[in-house]
Write a protein that binds this DNA or RNA. Structure first.
Length: 574
RNA sequence: CGGGAUGUAGCGCAGUCUGGUUAGCGCGUUUGACUGGGGGUCAAAAGGUCGGAGGUUCGAAUCCUCUCAUCCCGACCA
């Protein structure tokens, strides 16, 4: 590619709203342009990177025996009514009507569509297992897109769906898929990508993993033990908290006028937040009131609570609902509440602590010296606490470290969540009908590109791994009007291209500094600098992206050296 | 959905508080010259519904009302 004809100009200054490196460089380098909030066009450079990621994904999926298909982005609502998601999913599902007033939607994922295929094409155990995948646009009407290409509304995703006659078969395939994902992320150059257990959430099923590319601008928080033996995302993370109990003191009602929050109450009574009990009220999807109690220095992990209660959604309860159950907002206590009206869930931290300050269910009063086993006996406690940075690892006891990361992939054991309601069944060898056991496997292609930039860049631009670099070699012809420079550069470009080396050639005759800066933004692993200075000795310079000094190579050995470098090092960054 | 901020040339910004001729600057773009190793110098040029609508006024980028868009923090999130 001659740079003089490449569409997609580079920019010297950061776009105003770019906050993280991938956003800055992908815009400045001419990889992508924003069209609307969370909606981007890819320019040739970006399209090349994405195509390479897709090629790697295809290879690994094909190696798993998965078969590529293509399903529509626009789907009829009735298909989603079958699974129940048309009602269950919130406004992030974009719904609209076609000209015949029929309810339609933009697919945010394709379980329904793939089940529609599978239930007509697959009927017998003899056809199982089977895996279908596609690389297709998804749309999620995110409330707030952010961080450039990391959280967007329209995006390209590889999604695969496996169908099995037995759970054992799913388990076996799931593990293979998990390993394939690890290989994919290695190959695209995400050096720091964690595969961790995650909360299946609304997806259903009980096993799920997500792949988190560690990066400061990521939105997900994961906890990792120092020896990496334990890693889990914030929703499911546990810790080996230690508690100390002391002798129980008599319960004492004390006035706490206007002091409602933990901070206020603890400050007013001169104790630490760890000496208080926090009351958090939720309403579940069926309208039931839930009272979660946890020590004042912890926060409630809603994912854990949802799982324990077996409910899909929890929202903070309003004051009216709390009062209706006999509790006083801001001064609430589990003591004396009617278990018929409110479901009480108590965290282990409460059982492990003594003489806590809790509400008195009376405005402007709290109790001192609450002890669970004495004051609220026969309550089974559970873990509903959110892990904090530095909490002890459940395996080793060492302090857990909180890391931020970008979720670049997730895999789920779906089981029969979709096949059952949607009637996707097969006949076994005895002629009996069963719902197919399913797994699904998602991977964000554009996100992966952004994540690589997050993990591999310097102050000038991306440092692409060879595997997904838009070009492998970048030729800079310095001062091309001088004797032989343009001719030599043309010849080198033609020769490399003829050899199948993906080469971009800066033939614009720009200032050296401008060319170097643009070459840094393009981020090709190898750079050839052709200038009068070295050409006089029959040499050119060869330099790795990110290195300050290059080396001189005799012109007649150049093609050979470049090819050797590219073949020899799978990752020229190292 | 709550809180905050911003919309002026392709990009980054000034001008708005305190209304007053043809709306500026830097980068980029085009033309020419000198240059030539991390965005050089000089000369010339093109490029604007000042986000939109309504209003106040002799006069609005500037004041008022409404509206749209984008970003940030939070809520939310297959």
């Amino acid at each position: 590619m001659r740079m003089s004809h490449l569409v997609g100009r580079t920019m010297r200054e950061d776009p105003r709203d770019a906050t993280c490196p991938s956003h800055r460089f992908l815009i400045r380098g001419g990889y992508a342009r924003q069209v609307s909030a969370g909606i981007f066009s890819l320019l040739p450079l970006g399209k090349r990177v994405v195509a390479k990621i897709e090629a790697i994904v295809r290879q690994e999926m094909d190696a798993l025996g998965a078969q590529e298909v293509l399903m529509p982005v626009v789907l009829p609502a009735e298909l989603w009514e079958e699974s129940g998601r048309y009602q269950n999913v919130g406004p992030e599902l974009l719904r609209f009507r076609d000209r015949n007033d029929k309810n339609m939607l933009l697919a945010m994922t394709h379980e329904e569509a793939v089940v529609h295929l599978a239930r007509t094409e697959i009927n017998s155990y003899k056809q199982l297992p089977a895996t279908l995948y596609q690389i297709q646009t998804k749309y999620r009407d995110e409330a707030r897109p952010r961080a450039g290409l990391i959280r967007v509304r329209e995006f390209t995703m590889k999604d695969a769906y496996s169908f099995h006659a037995s759970w054992e078969c799913l388990d076996e395939f799931y593990e293979k898929a998990r390993e394939a994902y690890i290989r994919i992320f290695e190959r695209v150059g995400l050096d720091n990508c964690l595969c961790i257990e995650s909360d299946p959430g609304m997806m259903g099923g009980d096993v799920a993993h997500e792949f988190i590319a560690v990066a400061d601008c990521g939105e997900d928080v994961v906890f990792v033990s120092p020896d990496a033996s334990y890693k889990a995302n914030r929703e499911v993370a546990m810790a080996a908290w230690k508690y100390e109990k002391s002798d129980p003191l008599p319960l004492e009602k004390v006035p706490t006028p206007g002091k409602q929050s933990i901070e206020e109450v603890a400050g007013f009574l001169g104790v630490g937040p760890e000496n208080t009990g926090k009351a958090v009220f939720y309403t579940d999807s069926d309208g039931n009131l839930v009272f979660a109690m946890i020590r004042g220095d912890f926060d409630v992990n809603e994912s854990k609570l949802r799982k324990i209660l077996g409910v899909a959604e929890l929202a903070y309860a309003d004051d009216e609902a709390i009062k209706a159950a006999g509790a006083e907002p801001g001064f609430a206590s589990p003591m004396g509440l009617d278990p018929e009206k409110v479901k009480i869930v108590v965290d282990n931290s409460i059982a492990g602590s003594s003489n806590l300050v809790v509400g008195a269910n009376e405005k402007d009063f709290h109790y001192k010296n609450f002890n669970l086993d004495r004051d609220l006996p026969d309550v089974e406690t559970v873990d509903i606490a959110l892990v904090r940075d530095g909490d002890p690892c459940p395996l080793t006891g060492a302090p857990l470290k909180a890391l931020r990361g970008i979720e670049v992939g997730n895999i789920f054991k779906l089981g029969v969540k979709y096949s059952e309601p949607m009637n996707c069944r097969f006949l076994d060898s005895n002629g009996k009908s069963h719902p197919m056991i399913m797994g699904c496997y998602g991977l964000g292609v554009g996100r992966a590109m952004a994540a690589v930039v997050e993990q591999s860049h310097d102050e000038w631009g991306p440092i692409w791994p060879l595997s997904i670099a838009p070009f492998h070699v970048h030729i800079c012809a310095l001062d091309p009007a001088k004797t032989g420079v343009r001719e030599t550069a043309d010849q080198v470009y033609e020769a490399l291209t003829a050899e199948g080396v993906e080469t971009i050639y800066d033939d614009r005759g720009a200032k050296a500094g401008a060319m170097f800066s643009d070459a840094d933004l393009v981020g090709a692993p190898l750079r050839i600098i052709i200038s009068p200075k070295t050409l006089a000795d029959g040499e050119v310079e060869l330099k790795k992206r990110g290195e300050k000094e290059g080396e001189r190579i005799p012109l007649d050995a150049l093609i050979y050296v470049v090819k050797t470098r590219l073949n020899g090092a799978s990752d020229p960054r190292k």
